[in-house]
C-alpha cells in the first residue's frame, strides 16, 4: 500500500481526535503498515477547531503529517472553508449536509460526498457526539481494502467506554451503510 493520507476536521467535542486515534490503532493491527497520527486543537475541550491526521504507509513514513489528503472529512462549515480545497486530484471529501459547499472548487465537484452525518447522529442515535462513529463507518467502507473493517471495530471496542460500545457500533454500522453515490446530496438526507 502506498502512502495514504486522511484528514478529519470539525469542532472540538465532535470526536475527530478520537476517530483519528481509532483509525491509527486499527492500523497497528495490520502487519508491516506504518502509521503516523497527529492532531491540532485549540485550548478548548469543547468547541473551537479540531483536526486529526492519519498517514498510513507500508514504507517508512518520512513526513509525519498530511501533505495532501486522499480522504478529507469536514463536519463544520469552518473546517470545510479551511481545508476543502486541499485534496489529491483523486481524493474524496466527506462533508456534512449542513455545510454549504457551493464554494467548492470546480475540480473537486465530483469528489464531494455530502452526507447527513450530524442529523443521523442526532435522530437515529440520539447523540450528536456519536457523529464520529458514523464518520468511521463511512471511512471504513472506503478504505476496507487497506484496513479490514473488523480491525476498526476492534479498535472502537478498545477505545470507547464499555457501556457505550453498543451505541457506538450502531452508529458505525449506520455510517458504513450510507451510500456513497455522487448523488448522496440526496441519499445522505434519506
Amino acid at each position: 500500500m502506498n502512502r495514504y493520507e486522511i484528514r478529519l476536521s470539525g469542532a472540538g467535542g465532535q470526536g475527530m481526535i478520537l476517530a483519528g486515534k481509532i483509525l491509527a490503532e486499527a492500523g497497528v493491527m495490520v502487519d508491516n503498515l506504518n502509521i503516523s497520527q497527529s492532531q491540532s486543537y485549540g485550548p478548548e475541550s469543547r468547541g473551537g477547531a479540531s483536526r486529526s491526521e492519519i498517514v498510513f504507509d507500508e514504507d517508512q513514513i518520512d513526513f509525519p503529517k498530511v501533505i495532501k489528503p486522499d480522504l478529507l472529512v469536514c463536519l463544520t462549515q469552518e473546517s470545510f472553508d479551511q481545508y476543502g480545497s486541499d485534496l489529491k486530484s483523486y481524493g474524496v471529501i466527506i462533508v456534512d449536509s449542513r455545510i454549504d459547499i457551493s464554494a467548492v472548487r470546480q475540480e473537486f465537484k465530483d469528489n464531494v460526498y455530502q452526507l447527513n452525518i450530524l442529523d443521523l447522529a442526532a435522530r437515529k442515535i440520539g447523540e450528536e457526539i456519536s457523529a464520529n462513529m458514523i464518520v468511521l463507518g463511512v471511512i471504513s467502507r472506503i478504505i476496507q481494502n487497506k484496513i479490514p473493517v473488523e480491525f476498526i471495530k476492534k479498535a472502537i471496542i478498545e477505545k470507547v467506554p464499555p457501556e457505550t460500545i453498543d451505541i457506538n457500533m450502531e452508529a458505525f454500522d449506520l455510517g458504513f451503510d450510507l451510500k456513497l453515490d455522487k448523488r448522496s446530496y440526496i441519499y445522505g438526507r434519506i
Binding site: 492500523g27 497497528v28 502509521i35 503516523s36 497520527q37 497527529s38 513514513i61 509525519p64 503529517k65
Partner: peptide
Amino acid sequence: EVIGHLREK
C-alpha cells in the same frame, strides 16, 4: 510539539 503528540507504531 509534533514529536511529543505524534502517535506512531
